[in-house]
Design a protein around this nucleic acid. Structure first.
Lengths: 138, 138
DNA sequence: CTGGTTGCAAAGGCTTTGCAACAGG
DNA sequence: CCTGTTGCAAAGCCTTTGCAACCAG
């Protein structure tokens, strides 16, 4: 958090209470909140401001956008250890899990496609425990 | 294509010229078209019909939805060999590439999270060849 | 002070839906 | 025929934007 102040200032950006609160809220939610979930925690900050700042943070690579929200985007802080995601197809929940980084696949992809590789992502899809139980009830 | 007729009929769904054309168009486009790209090929079919049918085909698992279109969804036919995707961060293009299926990761994810696993996906991000050239020009 | 920021309301862009006319089987 | 389907226009939903008031530095 503190390390952001010089980072923003260098770029002529200001530390506003809104920006601080948005980041603190994402931190406190821990998971992968949507804009709507962030706004629910800090309803006195306008939705437009949250949208604009989340977008700004993504462009500054402070946040990462996860496009798996069924139309909505979810966000996570980038200053976290590498991990992959598992998504529940019933409730939409996203959980992190650790797995050795798939470094090889980037080399292969580069050889096969001649792309200049930047990163990769991997998601596993399934049913979380509580949705498995609910399914059993039907 | 032919194998779809009994598949739809079993479910009380009809084979309409629109449905046939939508699937043929996706086939002919080969890649991972958006709804808009499909509609551009068959503009005499209403956008609403294309949306409704694409959605129907996804629910029937004839099509798979790829949520990497920067807001738009892209679609691909499911009756294709397993493969992974590489995305160009500049132009948004999606290319398939082959890599041994990451079966192990599903077992690990199951052990770590207790999810019931259905599938997984993996995307590599980078710059395609033609966007690499363009970048060099700047 | 002064240019970046906020927040409201309006506009945008993609997608879904209500409904009357239509048509596959 | 009868129920599923089409297509228009309208509505929905999430997100972005114009702009005046505001405020961080």
């Amino acid at each position: 958090m503190q390390e952001l102040i010089p980072f923003l200032k260098e770029r002529g950006l200001r530390i506003t209470p809104q920006r601080t609160l948005i980041l603190q809220t994402i931190l406190s939610l821990k998971g992968h909140p949507t804009v709507e979930e962030i706004h629910r925690q800090i309803p006195h900050i306008s939705l437009a401001t949250i949208y604009n700042n989340v977008k700004l943070f993504v462009s500054l690579r402070i946040l990462k956008e996860l496009p798996y929200g069924n139309g909505l985007s979810k966000y996570e802080l980038t200053n976290q250890p590498n991990h992959y995601h598992i998504l529940c197809e019933a409730c939409g929940d996203i959980i992190d899990f650790n797995y050795p980084t798939l470094t090889q696949i980037e080399d292969v992809a580069n050889k096969l496609t001649q792309f200049k590789i930047n990163s990769h992502q991997m998601e596993v899809y399934g049913l979380c425990q509580s949705c498995q139980r609910k399914e059993g009830d039907d």
